[in-house]
């Protein structure tokens, strides 16, 4: 079960490369590794924290106010993350402030809570959240690395237009090679 949740998050149902969710911060922040790492940590904290909170109180949340409750928890944790970033990593905060604040509206997190954390047990949703967070962080870090070093050769790579090009090419490459990879490792096949 835990193995499945991790493989799902990292590969089979990766939020960035398969579900294509949370692309706004992904495209905007990934122009260098440092920013990518900062946003990964903040998003992972909010995703895992809110999943844990919601799944542990899910039986007490009435269906008709579930969305306000979810958003309240996510917004609270996002604000906490913003405060700590502002206090202990101010240089990074100045660079990524806007995109940390809009974690609140990240459909990756709300989607995860609506479909998993509000329905499954605490440990299941915890592992699923860790898997999803790792998948999103991996995508951010890979893009951040590619764009930071590609910029040395092609300056466009660090600009917004370059973000779309790099993401498009990366997805195309991933789709091409994923068939070969799943042939070799059947566990990675999408179900």
């Amino acid at each position: 079960m835990y193995r499945d949740a991790l493989i799902d998050g990292l590969w089979r149902r990766n939020v960035a490369s398969v579900q294509l969710l949370g692309l706004c911060p992904l495209l905007a922040v990934s122009y260098n590794v440092r920013n990518a790492l900062g946003l990964s940590i903040a998003s992972s904290f909010v995703l895992i924290g809110s999943s844990l909170t919601i799944s542990s109180v899910r039986k007490f949340i009435p269906d008709n106010v579930r969305l306000p409750c979810f958003v309240l928890v996510i917004a609270t944790l996002t604000t906490v993350a913003t405060m700590y970033m502002q206090a202990f990593a101010y240089d990074l905060y100045v660079q990524v402030a806007l995109f940390v604040q809009i974690i609140v509206t990240n459909c990756m997190i709300l989607g995860h809570i609506e479909s998993i954390a509000s329905k499954k047990t605490v440990s299941e949703s915890l592992f699923s959240a860790i898997g999803t967070a790792l998948g999103f962080s991996a995508a951010l870090l890979v893009l951040g690395t590619i764009r930071q070093y590609l910029e040395l050769a092609i300056p466009l790579a660090a600009h917004p237009a370059g973000a779309f090009l790099v993401v498009g090419l990366a997805l195309a490459t991933l789709n091409t090679v994923s068939e070969q990879i799943t042939k070799k490792i059947p566990a990675l096949r999408k179900t």
């Binding site: 109180v57 007490f60 949340i61 009435p62 106010v65 306000p68 409750c69 309240l72 928890v73 917004a75 609270t76 604000t79 906490v80 405060m83 700590y84 502002q86 206090a87 202990f88 101010y90």
Partner: peptide, 25 residues
């Protein structure tokens, strides 16, 4: 009732974080 309790919990968490980080910020 649930929403009110959740709001109170959130507000207390934010207050704690604020007390902890405010001087650094």
């Amino acid at each position: 009732l649930t929403f009110t309790l959740l709001c109170i919990a959130s507000a207390s968490l934010l207050a704690l974080a604020n007390v902890h980080t405010n001087s650094y910020i």
